[in-house]
Nucleic acid binder design. Structure first.
Lengths: 206, 206
DNA sequence: CCAGTATTTGACCAGTCGGTCAAAGTAAGG
DNA sequence: CCTTACTTTGACCGACTGGTCAAATACTGG
């Protein structure tokens, strides 16, 4: 049984392929219906496998969801980790905004998966938010405070600055339907990068 | 049968009270689990009524959800409607931001109800987004364009300006759990109004 | 080619889902 | 007080839920 030891990677090519198929399908379904709204049957159909076959590779519905979330958490925080405390402050933050927006454009389903989880109270990743996430944010906040005190960027509340970046970039993935409904034909991601760069430049310029 | 004609208001006090109880309970449940993740049994328990009794007042699960959404849509757009094209441009926009943020603080469940619906593809309110919402936004965008061309506010993409306002204000309701996890003890809504006012002042100042 | 292992699935299970219905209970007006 | 309309509910329905299991099938190394 391949799912007995969750920590080690699958061995065979079949296991690798099917786990990938399942996670891909699960991402699709979980991101559009939330955890409780998603069903194993849906995921099975989407993956082109039988339901018992899903449960041969993963112990439970929750196990699939957990795998997705924890696997994603790392990737998701990469753009923030890449902020360089030795770089030029404004450039570093603007580059972070760019990376984050690009992430939303490339991986909207991943963004919505997190959005669903957090909007619904984050019952399954609250620990990661209070731990891993908070730790990284605290670290970067210290860097931003440093930049502020050196007069390199305007004096803004560092935590809320970060919330702004998350909020504005993820909005284009999470609320994509609404944005498109309002814009009509116009493509959201055409003007968004330019607009956001402009906005954060104004916010950060001392 | 009180739910036969959906357009007219309930007559008796009992009907009024029970419909309110149900909608209140449904708001609680739908906003934390999304449409598919919510169950009638949960809503019934939350409302202190039996499940068949729910369905005596509302035709179906979807009818309850629809009633909530359409009832909310109006209230939700009020802060934007209140923008006065004859007022002082920057004041008007900043006041709109304030009202919107206050809305998120006072009615976080309503905000999450919409967030759930839209993140999940807005299958039940897409028409309202493309119609009512788009119309109102288009109207206000025209006003903003006017202000811009008069040099009263900085030249920013009006649609994306509005998306910013929605995004930043609703973030504090929809992602409340995450914001609190990162901030620790600090109360989000203490600094948020000040920060947002500061941000939009910078964005709008010509 | 064959034995042993990895993979797949049909049949099935108990619990829950949204929803129905007839019957019982309650309120109100004359 | 009694009729009539409104309200409530226990019992129930078929469909679906996450999950199990034994048997069947495919794959692999020797």
């Amino acid at each position: 049984m391949p799912n007995e030891q969750e920590t080690e990677r699958p061995r065979t090519r079949i296991q690798q392929r099917n786990r990938d198929l399942i996670l891909e399908a699960a991402l699709e379904v979980f991101s559009t219906h939330g955890f409780r709204g998603a069903t194993l049957d849906q995921i099975a159909i989407e993956a082109g496998l039988s339901k018992p076959n899903l449960l041969y590779y993963f112990a439970s519905k929750e196990a699939i969801h957990n795998e997705l979330l924890s696997g994603l958490m790392d990737t998701w925080l990469d753009p923030m980790r890449a902020m360089d405390s030795n770089g030029e402050p404004i450039d570093e933050i603007l580059a972070y905004v760019d990376r984050k927006l690009e992430m939303s454009r490339m991986y909207p389903r991943e963004s919505r998966l997190f959005a669903n989880e957090i909007v619904q109270g984050a019952p399954r990743i609250l620990d990661a938010l209070k731990g891993e996430l908070k730790q990284l944010v605290d670290e970067k906040v210290a860097v931003i405070r440093d930049w502020t005190s050196q007069g390199k960027i305007a004096s803004v509340h560092p935590y809320h600055l970060i919330f702004s970046i998350w909020s504005l970039t993820q909005h284009y993935a999470d609320f994509d339907v609404q944005v498109r409904a309002v814009l009509g034909e116009e493509e959201p991601f055409d003007a968004a990068p330019v607009y956001l760069r402009e906005v954060f430049l104004k916010i950060l310029t001392p």
